[in-house]
Design a binder for these strands. Structure first.
Length: 426
RNA sequence: GGAGAGAUGGCCGAGUCGGCUGAAGGCGCUCGCCUGCUAAGCGAGUGUAGGACGUAGAGUUCUACCGAGGGUUCGAAUCCCUCUCUCUCCGCCA
């Protein structure tokens, strides 16, 4: 959420931002509501002041065993007026808040203006694509041929966009989770947390999934519980409504959770394989930091995510998302795209963003500097470190051999009982 | 699922028959004094959010908030209703 005062004083800039993000929304109603809201506020607060003063006098009379029925009658009218105004104010504030929650974040000045992913500049490339003396298969073929991925039975027991992992496939997924968490906790200084896999609507508003992207979520019936679409939601909200001490910052958290996404609107896209599932595993990195450090923290967060791919020796590139491709809540986002030889393309495997104070304002994430009385909003960041299913995809495709087996990257072997190669499961 | 108890400031905790309680008292914290050091002692200060006026910076003032929402009343932390959460006992259970 943007600061209303900012929207008021930078109206043209915010309007231009909306166009740069390919979003169409008229901001004028928001300003009108804000003006109404403040004018009613002045009126009702004045009446409440009158009431408070009168109450003190009535109270004094009462103690002196005196009465003033005319006064009471007058105050009854004042109270009714206050009640009516309060109701109007509440309605206007609701409408105002609803609109404000729909305005996306301001992109950082370093973000290129562009329409879609074709306009995302490549920041850097790491490693080289492996060479094959045979035609590399797509991971769904590699996985099904080895008997470690089973889409058919998953579809039967649940539905499309779910997968059943068998044997070494299941173990590899689990190994990746442990490996990633270990790297981030032991080498990068993150604290591991294991949050609930369901969250309430307040948390989802806090991080920006609600109210605008409701259709992307799975919600439980008759309860205010949603399956987490990413660990970002519970983890970013850990400290909601608290006031942290400057000394406690920065906070670095890493969490494994499954992620649940309805994928509404992506029918027909990536229908085969593990790329786009309703449920997938992810290890997430979340940072809560002081504002002046957030961009430097973003670069480090990105490097922390890259370190996983480097340790697994997987070729990738980093792109900087342009204004038209960037997420609603983000000020600046880097995507890491891993090379998938079976599909001859780069695919997103991590998205690292700085949200500045956008989520902090929504989730009420504050801190206080040493010796200062004023509270300030934190800056929040997060990134995948990494999407586990897609990492498994990358391993199957990049490490496949001509005989159909898959070599396990050396870094993962300690997590796989020193297994060196996945062979056909019996 | 059944029965009961509770939710007040950073923490503990008092609020009587609704009215001078934004909230006693204590702890903690900050600043000052005192002091071989430490400790103790003394003094002052110490919630959040929003609005109005105003400033170079400051400041002045009003309103709201005692789990959340609603009701009664001239007036609610205090009374009534609904919800959420916590605790205790019983039942069930990984």
């Amino acid at each position: 959420m943007l600061d209303v005062k900012f929207v008021r004083s930078h109206f043209d800039q915010v309007s231009q931002m909306m166009r740069n993000r390919q979003t169409d929304m008229d901001l004028q109603p928001l300003l009108d509501l804000d003006a109404q809201r403040r004018s009613i506020l002045v009126e009702v607060e004045e009446l409440k002041h009158q009431r408070n003063v009168a109450n003190e006098e009535i109270s004094k009379l009462k103690r002196e065993k005196k009465e003033d029925p005319a006064r009471l009658e007058h105050m009854r009218e004042v109270s009714q007026k206050i009640k009516a105004l309060d109701q109007r104010l509440a309605a206007i504030e609701q409408e105002f808040k609803d609109l404000l929650l729909l305005i996306p974040n301001m992109p950082h000045e370093s973000v290129a203006i562009g329409r879609d992913e074709k306009d995302n500049p490549v920041v850097r490339t790491w490693g080289t694509a492996p060479r094959f003396d045979f035609d590399p298969k797509a991971h769904w073929d590699v996985g099904e041929d080895l008997g470690i991925l089973d889409f058919e039975r998953a579809a039967r027991m649940t539905g499309a966009r779910f997968a059943l992992y068998w044997g070494a496939g299941a173990a590899l997924e689990r190994a990746l989770i442990s490996f990633m968490l270990d790297v981030h906790t032991k080498r990068h200084g993150y604290t591991e947390v294991l949050p609930p896999f369901m969250v309430n609507s307040t948390s989802l508003i806090g991080t920006g999934q609600l109210p605008k992207f409701r259709e992307d979520l799975f919600k439980l019936e008759n309860r205010d519980f949603y399956l987490v679409p990413t660990a970002e939601v519970p983890v970013t909200n850990i400290h909601m409504t608290e006031i942290l001490d400057e000394d406690e910052l920065p906070k670095y958290y890493t969490a494994y959770t499954p992620c649940f996404r309805s994928e509404a609107g992506s029918h027909g896209k990536d229908t085969r394989g593990l790329i786009r599932q309703h449920q997938f595993n992810k290890v997430e990195l979340v940072k809560l930091v002081k504002p002046e450090t957030s961009y430097e923290e973003l670069e480090r967060l990105l490097q922390n995510a890259e370190a996983i791919l480097q340790a697994l020796d997987l070729h990738y590139r980093v792109v900087l998302l342009c204004t038209g491709d960037m997420g609603f809540s983000s000020s600046k986002t880097y995507d890491i795209e891993v090379w998938l030889p079976g599909q001859n393309t780069y695919r997103e495997i991590s998205s690292c963003s700085n949200f500045e104070d956008f989520q902090a304002r929504r989730a009420n994430l504050r801190f206080r500097r040493r010796g200062q009385s004023k509270t300030e909003l934190l800056h929040t960041l997060n990134g995948s470190g990494l999407a586990v299913g897609r990492t498994l995809v990358a391993i199957l495709e990049n490490y496949q051999q001509s005989d159909g087996t898959v070599v396990i990257p050396p870094a993962l072997r300690p997590y796989m009982g020193n297994m060196e190669r996945i062979e056909k499961q019996r």
